[in-house]
Amino acid sequence: MFQNIGEMMLLLWLTIKAIPSAWRQKRKILEQLFEIGNASLLMACILSLFIGGVIALQSGPVLRTRGLVSALGGLVGLSICKELAPVMMAILISGRIGSSMTAEIGSMAVYQEIDALKTMNINPVRYLVVPRMIAICISLPVLVMFSILVAWLGGALVAAFNREIGVSMESFFNNLRNVVEVRDVVNGLIKSFVFAVVIGIVACHQGLQTIGGPRGIGRSVTKAVVNSLVLILILDYFLTRFLLYFDK
């Protein structure tokens, strides 16, 4: 995996260089955006609702026994927007969107469609990678924003209706508003943008690398998903470290 990082950096560079001509691919970008939204909105909604709920459920009773239950809104609010929403959505998108990008591009590689593009003097990076990268880099942050809001709601619902916690929605959100600042949300969105770049590049790179028929496509898809998950979790740590400097 790590020997590929150089190649992926190169692909990223080629992609960035090709972005100025991207407006010509706007139809494909819209198609990709629609596909991503379509494939992930419902899942994102369910996931987020339950993640928010379970965080409240885990921490609420503990806080109550220590008399700190009034801090629940801030706790749930922060952990969701800085950590859980960006990582969960990245995992979801890597599984749903990254995998299908790899499969699509991989099958084009295996069935010589990419060779055919090259013989027509059409740059595969511009034609295939750029629209997908743009679409994923727009949609993941948007999805994370949506996820944050839904997860907060999930937390608030559990806090209000669980008898061991018993924090009203109003006081939950009051505390949340006092603790969570705009820059905390921005922090999460920056993370999600970086994750989007990682997912897109890993998926497209692995797709372009695919050799050896249908089994090769399967292998590529697995590899792309596993590699992007590993990279996301490692990067998450370092990004968190890095973004902490700006918190002061």
């Binding site: 084009m108 069935y111 010589q112 060779d115 055919a116 013989t119």
Partner: peptide, 12 residues
């Protein structure tokens, strides 16, 4: 230049 691939290699 143009190449006609054995499989056709049309974009599916």
């Amino acid at each position: 230049l143009a190449m006609i691939f054995q499989s056709g290699a049309l974009l599916n």
